[in-house]
Amino acid sequence: MRQTELHLTEEDRAVLDDICSKGQHRAREVRRAHVLSCLDRGVPESQIMAVLGIGRTTVWRTRLAYLQGGIDLAVFDLKRSGRPRRYNSDDEARVVALACSTPPAGRKSWTLGELQRVARQEPGLAGMGRETVRRMLRKTISNPGAG
């Protein structure tokens, strides 16, 4: 298969050499830097794949990312937003306030199960689980059982 030629600038070569020579980068970043460096020197894809232990699509994607966006896009991973928070700080404050309130009749202190049951009755907290309540309370320094 015919390779697309890749020509790096002197500045990009220097950046890639720094990435490959210093132990301050993730393994996948170093591997991508090696791919670009090898492509720049005209090393065949099959040899790159054999030496680095990667697939053809990794070589293709790394080359394409460099051509589209340079070193930053080709070597480094983009930041990911992650899953949005389900409950905001107001919801957490409501759960903490509930935990600091007077426990149910016949109880000396709140249990996580009781907090979950009561929190689920609040508007907007219907799907809250026991572990979520525990994590919210862990963030606070308060000890609702002490008193």
Score class of each variant (00 low, 15 high):
1 M>Q: 08
2 R>I: 15
3 Q>M: 15
4 T>L: 11
4 T>I: 11
5 E>R: 15
5 E>G: 05
5 E>F: 14
6 L>I: 11
6 L>A: 02
6 L>H: 04
9 T>V: 05
10 E>C: 03
10 E>H: 07
11 E>F: 02
12 D>W: 00
13 R>T: 03
14 A>H: 08
14 A>T: 13
14 A>F: 09
17 D>C: 06
18 D>E: 09
18 D>W: 00
19 I>Y: 14
19 I>V: 15
19 I>C: 05
20 C>A: 13
20 C>D: 03
21 S>F: 09
24 Q>G: 11
24 Q>F: 11
25 H>K: 13
25 H>Q: 10
25 H>N: 14
29 E>T: 13
30 V>N: 02
30 V>M: 14
32 R>A: 13
32 R>I: 09
33 A>L: 09
34 H>W: 14
37 S>A: 13
37 S>M: 14
38 C>G: 13
38 C>F: 15
40 D>R: 08
40 D>V: 05
41 R>P: 06
42 G>S: 07
42 G>A: 08
43 V>M: 15
44 P>G: 10
48 I>P: 07
48 I>M: 12
48 I>S: 06
49 M>P: 08
51 V>Q: 10
53 G>M: 09
53 G>W: 05
55 G>W: 04
56 R>A: 05
57 T>R: 02
58 T>Y: 06
58 T>M: 11
60 W>P: 00
61 R>T: 03
61 R>F: 07
62 T>P: 04
63 R>P: 12
63 R>K: 15
63 R>V: 04
65 A>Y: 04
65 A>T: 02
66 Y>T: 03
67 L>D: 03
68 Q>M: 08
69 G>T: 06
70 G>P: 12
70 G>H: 02
71 I>K: 10
71 I>E: 00
74 A>Y: 01
74 A>H: 00
77 D>Q: 07
79 K>C: 01
79 K>L: 04
81 S>H: 05
81 S>A: 07
82 G>W: 07
82 G>D: 01
82 G>Q: 05
82 G>L: 09
84 P>A: 01
84 P>S: 03
85 R>D: 08
86 R>K: 13
86 R>D: 07
87 Y>Q: 00
88 N>E: 07
88 N>V: 09
88 N>Y: 05
89 S>K: 12
91 D>H: 15
91 D>E: 03
93 A>Q: 10
93 A>T: 11
94 R>E: 03
95 V>M: 08
95 V>A: 01
95 V>K: 06
95 V>S: 01
97 A>P: 05
97 A>H: 08
101 S>R: 03
101 S>H: 01
102 T>N: 04
102 T>P: 01
103 P>T: 07
103 P>E: 03
103 P>R: 02
105 A>I: 14
106 G>W: 12
108 K>R: 13
108 K>M: 09
110 W>D: 03
111 T>H: 06
113 G>F: 11
113 G>I: 05
114 E>T: 14
114 E>V: 10
115 L>F: 12
115 L>C: 08
117 R>N: 09
119 A>D: 01
120 R>F: 00
121 Q>L: 15
122 E>H: 08
124 G>S: 04
125 L>E: 00
127 G>F: 12
127 G>Y: 09
129 G>Y: 09
131 E>V: 15
132 T>R: 06
132 T>A: 14
133 V>L: 02
134 R>D: 00
135 R>S: 14
137 L>C: 04
142 S>M: 11
142 S>L: 11
143 N>W: 10
143 N>P: 00
144 P>S: 02
147 G>Q: 04
